[in-house]
């Protein structure tokens, strides 16, 4: 279809929490070596999409492949930066330790991280400008520093594809620029980076590819082509912005009811 390989291919993915559908028939083809934003309103299913690709949630229908193979076989090619608020930052551990957790996947069961892992972790911390904080307790970090720590943890995973859930949340402008710089370096090294992003202002500046998501995939492609007002209106404007002429204004998909029709 194109000259480039696809890093991630999602076909006809549908997912429901218990009986509440959150993702409907999503198709996604992410070429290798791009920096892609996923945008959409709160509750659009962005986190859910990432978690499903990472095999943390089981889809009701659809197929997901990473470089042409199922995720399970390609796990080591993928790194993940969860939403910062998803962990207890008062946990008794320090920055270096958290970063080393990124090595656990390669270590496998029972084996303890060694000197090499330590050096890799320090290296990653240097990259994100946190080398001086290696031995700092994690509760004593600012939001931006927490985010950099998570970023470093993903870096030591040494993956081909990076998934990041709102890495700019609660981060100041300087840190945001530093992070985006890093992501661009990753892209330059041929990695694929997928970022859940909330700031529509910066999409064109930061990313070269974008997926607009609101329960359905509204559009996906190069920013210059798909990041249009029409698509944004479809994503943020209408209720679920799909076929719906009746529903407009601020309603969110939170009010989605289970699909009880069809029979």
């Amino acid at each position: 279809m194109t000259e480039r390989r696809f890093a991630i291919e999602v076909e006809d993915l549908t997912l429901a929490y218990q009986d509440k559908p959150v993702l409907w028939d999503i198709d996604l083809h992410v070429p290798e070596g791009i920096l892609m934003a996923i945008v959409g309103p709160n509750g659009a299913g962005k986190t859910t999409l990432i978690k499903t690709i990472l095999g943390l949630l089981k889809p009701a229908a659809g197929r997901i492949t990473i470089y042409g193979k199922p995720f399970v076989a390609q796990r080591k090619l993928v790194a993940y930066v969860p939403q910062r608020g998803s962990v207890d930052w008062d946990f008794p551990t320090n920055v270096l330790d958290v970063v080393m957790m990124g090595r656990y996947g390669r270590l496998g069961w029972v084996k303890w991280p060694g000197r090499e892992d330590r050096e890799l972790a320090m290296e990653a911390l240097r990259k994100v400008g946190m080398a001086n904080f290696a031995h700092r307790q994690i509760s004593q970090l600012s939001g931006g520093q927490q985010q950099r720590t998570f970023l470093a943890r993903a870096l030591v995973q040494d993956a081909q594809i990076y998934f990041m859930d709102e890495p700019f949340q609660g981060v100041d402008a300087t840190t945001e620029r530093a992070i985006i710089q890093l992501l661009k370096e990753l892209r330059a090294a041929g990695k694929t980076v997928v970022v859940v992003h909330h700031d529509l202002q910066t999409v064109s500046e930061y990313f070269d590819w974008v997926t607009l998501l609101n329960v359905r995939r509204i559009a996906s492609g190069p920013v210059s082509q798909v990041f249009t007002e029409e698509n944004l209106r479809l994503t943020y404007g209408g209720k679920v912005a799909f076929l719906s002429k009746t529903a407009v204004s601020q309603s969110t998909p939170d009010t989605l009811q289970p699909a009880s029709s069809g029979g």
């Binding site: 549908t14 429901a16 009986d19 028939d25 198709d27 699909a259 069809g262 029979g263």
Partner: peptide, 21 residues
């Protein structure tokens, strides 16, 4: 039981959406 029923309804909905898509 609801999940069982919904599984079929859900699948039909998924099918129609797929076709439309």
């Amino acid at each position: 039981r609801r999940r069982q029923r919904q599984r079929w309804e859900f699948a039909q909905a998924a099918l129609t959406i797929h076709l439309l898509h």
